[in-house]
């Protein structure tokens, strides 16, 4: 019988959110993570009073399961479906590796940045024939 005291730990929602945000931000094609109104207001309040920004990822831990919800902004040139899958895979693996939690990752691509450039002769031409 071991004399060591029983020790338990529970990863918190904020921890999972920060791990998820770090992992998502590192996925190629993710330009930014978007938060909701509450997150925006918290972030602004944090800037005003000089504290760290609020996490831009929603996370909820329930027992050995975690659920992460994030909204990403990407750029034209990255396939939205492939990007969403990559984010789900990377975030899921990162949270699982760091906390041991099985993680469901909900991803929404909320904006695709389009670099506007003048049309070139190489563009598809449908002028009168």
């Amino acid at each position: 019988m071991s004399d060591e005291p029983e020790t338990t730990y529970r990863p918190g929602d904020a921890l999972v959110a920060r791990v998820a945000a770090e992992a998502a931000a590192g996925v190629p094609g993710v330009v930014a993570l978007r938060t909701d109104l509450a997150g925006t207001l918290l972030g602004l309040a944090g800037q005003v009073v000089g504290t760290k920004r609020a996490p831009v990822v929603g996370a909820r831990v329930d027992g050995r399961q975690a659920e992460v919800t994030l909204s990403v902004v990407t750029r034209l040139g990255f396939n939205c479906r492939d990007l969403a899958r990559a984010v789900q895979r990377e975030v899921g693996e990162a949270v699982r590796a760091y906390t041991g939690l099985d993680t469901l990752v909900r991803v929404t691509v909320v904006e695709v940045l389009i670099d506007r450039s003048p049309a070139t002769p190489a563009d598809a031409d449908v002028s009168a024939r």
């Binding site: 939205c80 479906r81 969403a84 469901l104 929404t108």
Partner: peptide, 10 residues
């Protein structure tokens, strides 16, 4: 969006 890893949308 079709994804084997969970819910994804655009």
């Amino acid at each position: 969006l079709d994804s084997p890893h969970g819910p994804a949308a655009l």
